[in-house]
Design a protein around this nucleic acid. Structure first.
Lengths: 237, 237
DNA sequence: CAATTCGTGTAATCGGTGCTTACATTCACA
DNA sequence: TGTGAATGTAAGCACCGATTACACGAATTG
C-alpha cells in the first residue's frame, strides 16, 4: 500500500451515473453496461493525478469515481500500469498539442527564436501541469519501448527540438559549436528547470513562485546568448 | 499495493543474525533484542533502494531482511515515510561527502574551474547512484522543511555552489551577467542532465550509456564557455 | 541480590490495494 | 429469435502500512 491518507471519504450514495448515451429504451435506472468505461477511467485517473500526483492513482478509486465495481477496470486495462500508461498517453498528447500550437505562432526565419519559443511553451506547460508532466517524464509509469502512443508523441517533440537547433546550426547561429552538445545542453537546461520546479527546489535556490516564469525566460535567454554569441568563431546575425 | 513482482523469495531460514555486540553471556541463540535495529533497517532500506528504486522499499521487507517481525520497525520509525527520511539523510550525507572530497582537490584560484569540478563530481555520483540520487531529489520521500538532516546537508551544497559562482562573479569571470540567473541556469543544466540520465531520456536523445560521462563534461564546458567568455553583457533589454 | 521499570520485539488485527476467478447481465449478430 | 462475445459484479487472495495488546529482557534501584 502507499495511499494511507484517504480521510475515508465515501462516494455519495446517489447520482453516480454521469450523462452518457443510452438505448433510449430503459427508463432511467442504472444500466448494467457503462457507456464508455475506458474513457471514463482515464479521465478519473487524470483527475486523480492532478489532485494528488501519480501515486494518488488507484484502480479502485478510479472505479469508485466511475461508479463501477473494483474489478471492472481490469476488463479494460490488464494492470494498474496499463492504466497509468493510458494516462501518460493522454497527457503526452495534450503536451505535444500545446507545444506545437505555440510554435505555430513563431517566426520561421529565426531558428534560435523558435527554440526559445519552444522552450517557453515547454516550461509553461510543465509548470502549469506539474503532476502530469511528471508522469510523462519519470519512466516508472510506462515503458517507453512498449508504449507506442507516448513514445511517438515524445519522439516527435524530440525531433522538433533537434531539427530546430540543427537549423540554427545550418544558419550559422551556433558558430562552430558541436550541435549534439548544444542539443543536450539545451534539453538539460529546460528539463532541469522544469524538474526543479516540480520537485520543489526553486524556493531553496531563492526563486519564489511568482518569479519562476520570468526566471525560465531569463535562463533561456542566457543560454541562447551563450551559444548564439560568437565567443570564438561564431557569427551573431 | 505497488510491489507485486516479488518472486516470492523467502529470506534464508538460517543465519539471520548479523554480527553484533552481545552481552557475552548467552550462548548463541537468537537474542530477543536486536543489537541496533534502527541502523540495520536503514541499511536494508538503502539496499532495497539500490536494487529496485525507492518504490521497492517496504517496511515489511526491511524487517524481513533484518530478521525481525513486521511490527518491529515501527518502534524506531513512526511511519514508512520516516524510514525513507532516514534513508534520504544517509544518502544525502554520502553525496555531500563525495562532492566535498572532490572539491578539495580543485585549485582555489579559479572559481569557474571549481564550479566545473563541482558539476563533474555531482554528475558522477548521480550517475553512479541513480536511485539514491532520486530519493534526495524527488521531494515525495521526505519533507525538506521538517528533515533537518537532509535539509542542512543539502543547504550546504547549495551554498557551496552559490558561493563558487559568486566568487567567479567577483573575479570578473562572468562579465556583467546576472549572478542569480547564472546560478539557476547552471543548476538547471546539471540537475537536468542528472535527471535525464536517471529517467532514461539520454538514449532517446542519441546519447549512449558509454558516452554519458563524456557528454556531461562537454555540456559543462559548453556552459562555462558561454558564461565565461565576455561576450558583452548579454544585454537583456 | 531482588524487584521493578522501561525499552524493544512479537502476535494479531484492521483497512486499503492490485489482481484473479467464477458468475451475471446485456449487446450484437446470425 | 437465439446464441456467443463483451462487459460488469461478487468474492477472495496476498501484500502492504499501521495499531494494539502482550512478552521478553536489560538496566536501574532499593
Amino acid at each position: 500500500m502507499r495511499r494511507p491518507a484517504k480521510t475515508s471519504e465515501k462516494s455519495p450514495p446517489a447520482g453516480r451515473r454521469p450523462a452518457k448515451p443510452r438505448p433510449a429504451r430503459a427508463p432511467a435506472a442504472k444500466p448494467y453496461h457503462h457507456g464508455d468505461l475506458r474513457r471514463v477511467l482515464i479521465d478519473a485517473a487524470m483527475q486523480l493525478v492532478g489532485e494528488g500526483g501519480p501515486d494518488a492513482v488507484s484502480v479502485r478509486e478510479a472505479a469508485r469515481r466511475a461508479g463501477v465495481s473494483p474489478g471492472a477496470p481490469f476488463r479494460h486495462f490488464p494492470s494498474r500500469d496499463a492504466l497509468m500508461n493510458a494516462v501518460a498517453e493522454e497527457a503526452q498528447r495534450r503536451f505535444r498539442a500545446e507545444i506545437e500550437a505555440a510554435l505555430a505562432d513563431a517566426p520561421s526565419g529565426d531558428p534560435l527564436g523558435r527554440f526559445r519559443c519552444l522552450g517557453i511553451a515547454y516550461l509553461r506547460w510543465a509548470m502549469k501541469n506539474p503532476t502530469h508532466f511528471e508522469i510523462i517524464s519519470s519512466r516508472r509509469f510506462f515503458d517507453h519501448d512498449r508504449s507506442a502512443g507516448v513514445s511517438s508523441d515524445n519522439a516527435e517533440l524530440i525531433g522538433l527540438t533537434e531539427r530546430t537547433l540543427a537549423e540554427a546550426f545550418s544558419a550559422g547561429q551556433l558558430g562552430r559549436r558541436d550541435l549534439k552538445q548544444v542539443q543536450i545542453a539545451g534539453r538539460s537546461l529546460v528539463y532541469g528547470f522544469a524538474r526543479m520546479h516540480i520537485d520543489g527546489h526553486l524556493p531553496r535556490w531563492g526563486v519564489a513562485a511568482a518569479e519562476a516564469e520570468r526566471m525560465a525566460a531569463d535562463i533561456l535567454d542566457l543560454f541562447i546568448a551563450g551559444i548564439g554569441a560568437g565567443v570564438a568563431p561564431a557569427a551573431k546575425a
